[in-house]
Write a protein that binds this DNA or RNA. Structure first.
Lengths: 331, 331
DNA sequence: GTGAAAGCGCTAACAT
DNA sequence: ATGTTAGCGCTTTCAC
C-alpha cells in the first residue's frame, strides 16, 4: 500500500554486509573487495535502490546542488547565461536549482534565503546588478556566491560580468564619428542596467564634445507601440541613430521608422545589444554588441566550483570581453 | 572558524523552551501561547536561525519541492511553459528544481532519476512527447508526475497538452480553401512533434482530396541558410504557401522569399506556430497558431498540486484550446 | 576490507 | 500549551 522505499539497510541485509559497506560501494570508495562490490552492486540493481539525496545531504552536510537565482527564465538574455551555468554544472556533477526572482528585491531576498535553507553548496545570482540588501546577505553567509551578468563594484563580491559602460561608449562613439546625431534607448527600469549604459553614452558624448541633453535618451518597455512614440521624440530632436539595450526594442523602433517610409540605415540607424536570433531575422538585420552570455554563465559556474572546493582562486572578479557586430541597420 | 550553524536546539536553549515548541512556532502550529511564540520568534530573529530544509525533508518525508524537466531553457516555447509552472508553484509555496534535459532520452532518464533521488514531492516533464522508456519510469514511481506541452496517448499518464494535429490540420485546411498549394515545414527531429503535425497536414490534404507527396514536406534546423534550400524545393513543386512549426524557421523562410523579391503573402504565404515576439517583429508579421503556453504550465502545476495532496482529480488528461491569429504573412 | 555506532537537524507521535 | 523521544536514511569516525 505504502510507497515502500528501499533503504541502504535493505540492500545491506540482502547482500549480507553492513550499511557502511553499501555506502562505500555507492560512493565509489576504493576500500571494498571487488567481489563484495559486485555482490552489493547486484543487489542494488535488483532492488532498484536509489540513494536518498536528502538523507545524504543531512549526514554529509553537502548537497552537490547549486542554486541559481534568475530574474526571468523567459528573458533570452538570462536564459543564455543559465545555459552556460547548466553545462558546466553537469560537467562537475552538480545539480541545479533554478529559482525565478522576478527582478524584485524582496523576492530576490526570499529566493536567496530559501536557497540557503535548502543547503545548496553554492549560489549564482544572475542579474544586471546586485541590490545593496542582497550584497549584505551575500557577505553574511558562508556559502560561496558568484554574481553573473551585470555590473558590480563591490570588490568583496565574486563576479563574472561584462563592461556595458565601455560597450555602450564604443558604440556611441562609433556612430558619432560618422557624424550621426545619436540617441540612447534604455530598457524597462527594473530589468536593465540603465545607469551604466547611460554613463557610457555620456562619456562618448563628452569625448566628442557634444552636449548631453535629456531628449537624447528614452526608456522603452517591450511593447511594440512604444516604438512610434520614442521615434517621434527623437526625430523632433534631430536624432538619426540610436543605441538600444535590447533587440526586441531595437526591432520595434526600427520597424516604426520603416513603417513610416524612412530608409534604414541612411535616414535612421539602429545599433542593438543582445545579438539574439531576432537581430538576424529582421530586415535589415540589426548591428549588435555581441555579449558572451553563455561564457559568462560557464565561467561563473567554474569559479563557483573552485570556491566550493576551497581551491586557490586568483581572479574573483572577471570581466569578459564583448565585440561589435555590424549589420544592415547601421551599414 | 567553522561555519557555525544555528540549529533548532540553539534556539530552544536560548528561549528556554523545548525544540518541539520552536518547531511549532516555525511551522505556524496554533498550539503555542502567544507570549511563548513571541519569545521564540525574538530569539529566532536575534540568532538569525534558518530552518534546515534538508533535515526537515528527511524527518517529514516531504520537501515542498517539485522537479521540472525542461528540454532547454533557451527555447522560448519551453521557457513560457516554465513561467506558468513557476507562478503557480510559488502560489502554492512549492520550490522548483528546474533540470535541463537536452531533449536526449538518456539524459532525460538521468535527470528524472536524480529528481526522484532529491525526494521532490512531484515532477512535471515538459516536452513535445514522452519516450516510452520515460513513460515506463513514470509509471513505476509513486511520485506524482504530470507531462506538459506535447502529445501523449497513454491514458495512464497525467498530462496537459495541446492538440497540434488538429491545429496543423486547421491551418492547412484554411490555406487549401484559398486555393493555395500548401507545404509543411517541420522542425529539428528531436525538438519537435513532427509526426503529429504531419498527420494533421495529411488529414487536411485528404479532406480536400489532394494527393500527398513527399516533396510537400521539409524539415528545417534553426539556421537561417536552410530557408533558401527549403524554398527552392518548394517552388520547384509549385508550393506557394507553407505551414511552419516554429517562428524562427518561418521567419527564415519568409526572408528567403522576400530576399529574392517575391511578394508575401501574394506569391508566397507563411503560417507559423508559436506566436512568439518574433512573429510580431518581422515584416510582414507572421500569422500564427496561438498556443496557451503559460496556461499549459499553470494548469499542469495546479494538477500536480492536487495529485500531491491526494485530492480528487476529475480530469487527468487536459487538452487546452488553441487559436489562429492571422497577420500579414497570409492576409 | 568491513562493521558498529553515533550523529546530521528536524518532525511527529505520545505524554503530561 | 509544552516537553520527551524515537526515528527519517545516510555518512563517517573508530574499531577490528
Amino acid at each position: 500500500m505504502d510507497k515502500q522505499t528501499i533503504t541502504i539497510y535493505d540492500v545491506a541485509r540482502e547482500a549480507g554486509v553492513s550499511m557502511a559497506t553499501v555506502s562505500r560501494v555507492v560512493n565509489g570508495n576504493p576500500n571494498v573487495k571487488p567481489s563484495t562490490r559486485k555482490k552489493v552492486s547486484d543487489v542494488i540493481e535488483r532492488l532498484q535502490y536509489r540513494p536518498n539525496a536528502v538523507a545524504r545531504g543531512l549526514a554529509s552536510k553537502k548537497t552537490t546542488t547549486v542554486g541559481v537565482v534568475i530574474p526571468s527564465v523567459t528573458n533570452i538574455f538570462f536564459a543564455a547565461l543559465a545555459r552556460g551555468i547548466d553545462d558546466i554544472a553537469s560537467m562537475y556533477r552538480y545539480n541545479i536549482i533554478l529559482a525565478n526572482s522576478d527582478e524584485n528585491t524582496e523576492r530576490k531576498l526570499k529566493v536567496f534565503n530559501s536557497l540557503l535553507a535548502s543547503q545548496v553548496d553554492g549560489i549564482i545570482i544572475i542579474g544586471h546588478n546586485l541590490d545593496q540588501r542582497l550584497v549584505d546577505e551575500v557577505k553574511r553567509t558562508h556559502t560561496p556566491v558568484v554574481f553573473a551578468g551585470g555590473v558590480i563594484e563591490d570588490p568583496e563580491i565574486n563576479s563574472v560580468v561584462i563592461d556595458y559602460e565601455k560597450a555602450t561608449q564604443e558604440v556611441t562613439d562609433l556612430l558619432l564619428k560618422r557624424n550621426r546625431k545619436v540617441g540612447l534607448i534604455t530598457g524597462p527600469s527594473e530589468y536593465m542596467n540603465n545607469e551604466v549604459r547611460l554613463n557610457g553614452f555620456k562619456n562618448a558624448l563628452a569625448a566628442n564634445k557634444i552636449e548631453f541633453n535629456e531628449n537624447l535618451i528614452a526608456q522603452a518597455d517591450y511593447t511594440e507601440k512604444d516604438g512610434n512614440v520614442i521615434l517621434d521624440g527623437f526625430l523632433a530632436e534631430g536624432v538619426d541613430s540610436v543605441v538600444v539595450s535590447q533587440d526586441t526594442i531595437a526591432a520595434a523602433v526600427m520597424n516604426a521608422a520603416l513603417d513610416r517610409g524612412m530608409r534604414v540605415p541612411e535616414e535612421f540607424a539602429v545599433f542593438s545589444s543582445n545579438n539574439s536570433i531576432i537581430a538576424e531575422l529582421v530586415r535589415p538585420q540589426l548591428s549588435c554588441i555581441q555579449l558572451p552570455l553563455y561564457d559568462i554563465g560557464a565561467v561563473a559556474m567554474r569559479l563557483l566550483t573552485k570556491l566550493m572546493n576551497q581551491e586557490e582562486v586568483d581572479e574573483r572578479q572577471v570581466v569578459l570581453p564583448h565585440q561589435l557586430i555590424e549589420r544592415g541597420s547601421t551599414l
